[in-house]
């Protein structure tokens, strides 16, 4: 299980990386491994202003469906369109090609409150 130290994490098994006030968000290596083969990423919230913990989409594996929870409040700017054809990128490269959304973060300070790699590892270890 890989856990890049540069990322922030949530107890819902999402990761977030911040560039200015734009966050890139996906699910963790642990999450993809638990879910198994991802066959569909269903996100219809582009343009929506959502609060932290709200559902911004769902990820469907062969056997299970899981809601995706927003780590911090913000506006969904973009969804990773490549996942339409290659949802398995979430399995093979969860922190890279498997990214799910770009979010304009309402309050950058909210990101500081998320888990760091060590705290997340303790949670799933």
């Amino acid at each position: 299980m890989t856990l890049p130290a540069s990322l922030k994490y949530t107890s819902d098994h999402e990761w977030l990386s911040l560039d200015g006030d734009i966050a890139t968000i996906g699910i963790t290596d642990f999450a993809q491994s638990e879910l198994g083969d991802i066959v569909f990423v269903d996100i219809n919230t582009v343009g929506s202003a959502l609060k932290a913990e709200e559902v911004f989409g769902t990820v469907e594996a062969v056997k299970t469906v899981s809601d995706l929870f927003l780590p911090v409040s913000g506006t969904v700017l973009e969804v990773n369109a490549d996942l339409e054809a290659t949802p398995d990128n979430v399995n093979s490269d969860p922190y890279g090609k498997g990214w799910m959304i770009k979010l304009k973060v309402d309050n950058v300070a909210d990101v500081d409150a998320l888990l760091d790699a060590a705290a997340y590892e303790a949670l799933v270890g």
């Binding site: 198994g36 083969d37 066959v39 062969v62 056997k63």
Partner: peptide
């Protein structure tokens, strides 16, 4: 045993 490697590959 629910899955060894990948549900799709096993299928």
């Amino acid at each position: 045993p629910v899955r060894y490697s990948s549900d799709l590959d096993e299928h």
